[in-house]
């Protein structure tokens, strides 16, 4: 069975303690974020069942929530996920072209992962950065004012980070 590391377990406990007695289910979203970070960037069934057991709720309650929110990955994703915003305000500033450029650079379509597992390209809806468009989310950060050079730089940066870590 999978479990959190001791540190994560402490953090989980700290989160659960925020809520009044008997309302521990409220910790579900934060704990799913923790689990996704801890267990390889996505939520498999054992991970979700584990969270259910921590919160003493039925597994289906976790599945219902995990499938509702778009930030939980229910399938493995590439090491770097490019989530490019395609909603109106970004479109007005050229997000369509940026998406095309990334497709061409990485030789993948939207929703696909490169064969080496390095990059996944996703299109997403407005991320609250409309004034700094076009933009994408990369991990926990936003990359804004994108243009072709910036995209090249970001791809380079990801590659060299991966090389360093290997």
């Amino acid at each position: 069975m999978i479990t959190f590391s001791e540190n994560k377990l402490k953090e989980a406990q700290r989160i659960i303690n925020r809520y009044p007695q008997g309302k521990q289910k409220s910790a579900l979203l934060p704990l799913l974020h923790l689990a996704q970070d801890e267990f390889g960037g996505w939520l498999d069934v054992p991970a979700m069942d584990y969270i259910a057991s921590l919160l003493n709720i039925e597994p289906i309650e976790v599945y219902e929530v995990a499938t509702f929110y778009s930030m939980y990955n229910l399938k493995p994703v590439g090491r770097h996920v490019f989530e490019v915003c395609q909603t109106g305000p970004c479109m007005l500033r050229g997000s369509d072209q940026i998406i095309d450029y990334i497709k061409q650079r990485l030789q993948i379509n939207v929703g696909e992962t490169t064969p080496d597992g390095m990059f996944t390209l996703k299109t997403v809806e407005c991320l609250g950065a409309c004034g700094y468009a076009p933009m994408m989310q990369l991990g926990k950060t936003f990359r804004e004012h994108l243009n072709e050079e910036k995209v090249d730089q970001i791809i380079e940066e990801c590659r060299s980070k991966a090389a360093r870590n290997n």
Binding site: L29, P30, L32, H33, F68, Y69, S70, Y72, E125, C126
Partner: peptide, 8 residues
């Protein structure tokens, strides 16, 4: 602070 998870 409670973080959502992607849902307008």
């Amino acid at each position: 602070v409670q973080r959502g998870a992607g849902a307008y």
